[in-house]
Design a protein around this nucleic acid. Structure first.
Lengths: 267, 267
DNA sequence: GCATGCGTACCGCTGAGCGGAACACCAAGA
DNA sequence: TCTTGGTGTTCCGCTCAGCGGTACGCATGC
């Protein structure tokens, strides 16, 4: 085997399993190594060194060195001295990735209206696995410091948009998410499968999902799904704000209306 | 040689040059092939088929098939039936790429203020080669249909932000851009090196760059560079609007002020 | 001095990647 | 109906791009 199996020796755990702990790449394909390298960059950090990347990916330092040189040659990475950062080309391609869906462009004006009308932060998100990915975030004028970030991820069950999407997704899909576990994000996060299912049933009935300090203390949110012709959710929008300043029930109709309009436009 | 050299036969040009015309990949490295595949997607198009991708990249259909399967496995591409589109993971990584620079986050509030004050579309862009890449675009309420797009490219010499950056860049850099040619974008695009140099000198003197229907007929724009401690431009911001509705001279101080403030904040 | 971290270079082995050939499929046109 | 030309996909033997251990130069900080 060509993979860096030797790395296990440093953390000598008696794992007989084929996959050592960490983010180590099992798949020896070059594509796997390259994506691992790109995915090694995390929200917080700036430029990373070869050694740090090797540590994160589980690849030999030598390999990281060579691969990164290739990626730099093609603009996917950039050199800053001897450190590496994600290249602008990735940003360009990434923008195309969402634009392809058409969702962002179509939703933009409506989201802007919604922010204007509510003076709060509005979100557009899709489901990816058990998490939501924020495609667009328009911050309100007096918005709280929300954990949501364009391109950022968040556990679906802990967000309004997540619950809105799940409520309009096939049953077995919800099972998968629940089966994967409901990690606690804030003090109020729903971690009980039964409670979640009860809430989702209500959401499916009303068309709007509420979230009260389940993702971060001090904030609440109302969400509603964007559905396709079959009634399945493809995305969701939400309005979020301070728990003591925002009356979620009052904003629900606005969010619901915008979501319905968007669903119709996309059809 | 392993590369798809055979492709030249179809367009049998007597090129003895090592690089056949088109976007064909000369570099036989896997990284090159993978990036070529990702870069094959263009702003307009939605999901692409294997054959189309093979045509665009110059790679054998078989290779595209295999490579794309790998990329799909790792989330960089997604399958839609048998067609392929850019994956959401690329969007996520792409967002990190700009966030790493800190520019976007720092500029956001100021750009929002600028839009609020001017009621026009504001831009944040950096220089990449001979073109500018838009990192952020905040559309004004009564904005014209500008060709600028987040993540989009545009020839530097034909935009306000481009001229602002060039005016505060090392001489030899400007030479390179001019040497690469000044393609005409609109009827009013500056294609004369001498005229461009004269304008850049004025921009360097005043700190603001103007653009009058040089990128698209009907629109004008005022721009000002974000400079580092050495006085070199790292980016630029601009306000753009209708040619007959916007008085660029009047907005110049606002743009200049915002740019200076941003430059100071980033230092 | 001597660790310990870094980024980088050398170089022989080898299997992942390669792509031609052939496949099944689905139109549109004869 | 049988082409013809376009898809996407599978097979399989050859081979060179990628691999990674080893080694080096250079900063750090005991």
């Amino acid at each position: 085997m060509r993979t860096a199996e030797r790395n296990t020796k440093t953390r000598l755990s008696g794992t007989a399993s084929p996959e050592p702990p960490g983010v180590t790449v099992a798949d020896p394909s070059t594509a796997a190594r390259l994506t691992a390298l790109l995915a090694a960059f995390r929200p917080g950090d700036d430029a990373l060194g070869v050694s740090e990347l090797a540590r994160r990916t589980g690849l030999p330092k030598t390999s990281v060195h060579r691969l990164s040189r290739h990626l730099v040659d093609h603009g996917l990475l950039e050199r800053d001295g001897s450190a590496l950062r994600l290249g602008l080309k990735l940003f360009e391609i990434g923008q195309l990735a969402v634009r392809q869906r058409g969702l962002v462009d179509t939703a933009r004006p409506l989201l802007a209206d919604l922010r204007e009308a509510t003076h709060n932060t509005v979100h557009l998100a899709v489901l990816e696995g058990t998490e939501v990915v924020y495609l667009d975030v328009l911050r309100g004028p007096d918005a709280p410091r929300l954990p949501s970030r364009i391109g950022g991820r968040f556990p679906a069950h802990a967000t309004g948009v997540g619950k809105a999407i799940l409520a309009f997704s096939p049953e077995d899909f919800v099972d998968t998410v629940i089966g994967a576990g409901l990690p606690r994000v804030s003090r109020r996060t729903i971690t009980s499968p039964a409670l979640l299912r009860r809430q989702l049933a209500k959401v499916a009935d009303e068309g709007t999902a509420y979230e009260r300090e389940e993702s971060s203390i001090g904030t609440v949110c109302v969400a509603s799904p964007i559905v396709d012709a079959d009634g399945h959710a493809v995305a969701a929008i939400s309005v979020a704000g301070w728990v003591n300043r925002m009356r979620t029930e009052r904003l629900a109709p606005a969010v619901r209306t915008a979501a319905l309009a968007l669903s119709r436009t996309l059809r």
